[in-house]
């Protein structure tokens, strides 16, 4: 078991390193291969009042004239031990983890990210709780009442949920409950530490619109998994023991049916933290998704890099958790 954990953690670290190298390559190497010169890159940093001297200085100070692997090494070093940046005459220290400075605003990237991660994380956590509860419950009920009206209706709603785009549900919800009948006077983000009740209340609409989509997805997954599991031989054995049907379903059926769902949940949740762009935009939440959109528009590479790495970190981390949870649920995994 210990070897299993160590191997997984080690694998996750290697994966993150690879992700960082690939992203760095995409953002810094590919443009260069496409003909972008170090000067052009430096020009972006300097901004409007560019003059040849300042561009040359930036180019040198930020190492844009160095080979790409040196630049990558410097970037990695910055992440772990921090780095000194010299934009003008004075060097500024950017402490670890240093994701560099925004091209556009010359603001350090990391503090910006740390401000926004809680927003995105809160959004994802709340939505996840709602969709898991609803999705799994509906899926189980559907599976147990296969072919009955309950099943047909919920699967129809699920189909709608999967097909409706998030900005549609989001706009409708906020249109109805914020503007038409103002149940919510504001959906601005309130930090959890400041006021948990307001935090939840203000996030409820974004949660619901996100969860609607995912509940639908999870209801369908749970239904399929449950139908398969309930046909297994060990379910027949459980019934042959004389167990009540409720015990057969919850103790024997659900536990096995949920195993694959745990895997998908880990991936979905990890991905969602960095990519709930639509929901954040519709509800004007200052999360990292919205942040990255702005950065992409501005071609602000350090921010894009930073967001990508943070998002990748969440995905890899959640997958690691999934692997460990999996081993805890399914004893067969521990030995193979």
């Amino acid at each position: 078991m210990a070897a299993y954990i160590i191997r997984r953690v080690f694998g996750a670290l290697v994966l993150l390193l690879v992700v960082s190298a690939v992203t760095f390559g995409i953002f810094f190497l590919v443009p260069r291969l496409g003909g972008q010169t170090a000067t052009q890159l430096a020009t972006q940093y300097v901004g409007k009042d560019a003059n040849p001297e300042s561009i040359a200085a930036i180019k040198k100070n930020l190492g844009f004239d160095q080979p790409i692997y040196i630049q990558y090494w410097d970037y990695l070093k910055g992440l772990f031990v921090g780095a000194d940046y010299k934009f003008g005459p004075d060097a500024t220290h950017c402490s670890a983890p240093c994701f560099g400075y925004s091209f556009k605003s010359h603001i350090e990237v990391w503090p910006q990210l740390t401000q926004r991660i809680p927003v995105s994380f809160s959004l994802a956590v709340g939505a996840a709780v709602i969709w898991v509860i609803f999705g799994v419950t509906i899926g189980v009920i559907s599976a147990l009442r296969k072919g009955k009206p309950v099943d047909r209706i919920s699967m129809f709603i699920a189909l709608a949920g999967v097909s409706l785009p998030i900005f549609f549900t989001g706009q409708i919800l906020s249109g109805l409950f914020v503007y038409q009948w103002p149940v919510w006077d504001s959906t601005d983000y309130v930090p959890f530490t400041q006021n948990p009740a307001d935090w939840a209340w203000h996030l409820l609409l974004p949660w619901i619109s996100l969860a609607f989509l995912f509940s639908a997805l999870y209801a369908r997954l749970t239904r399929a998994g449950m139908l398969e599991t309930m046909g297994e031989d060990y379910i027949r054995t459980a019934r042959a023991k004389g167990l009540k049907e409720s015990v057969v379903v919850s103790k024997h059926g659900l536990r096995a049916a949920l195993t694959p769902i745990v895997t998908i949940f880990g991936m979905d949740f990890g991905t969602l933290v960095g990519t709930a762009v639509l929901t954040e935009t519709v509800f004007s939440l200052q999360g990292i998704g919205a942040y990255s959109i702005q950065a992409i528009r501005d071609n602000d590479l350090p921010i894009v890099m930073g967001v990508t790495l943070v998002a990748a970190f969440f995905i890899v981390f959640c997958n690691l958790i999934v692997d460990l949870v999996y081993a805890a649920i399914d004893p067969r995994v521990r030995y193979s």
Binding site: D233, Y234, T237, A240, G242, K244, H252
Partner: peptide, 22 residues
């Protein structure tokens, strides 16, 4: 149901798939 497993019991063909793996 109350008779199953007490008054009448059953064993199946494939003992691996007939026992819960977890």
């Amino acid at each position: 149901r109350r008779l199953r497993g007490r008054k009448m019991a059953m064993i199946f063909q494939d003992p691996l798939s007939s026992m819960h793996p977890y």
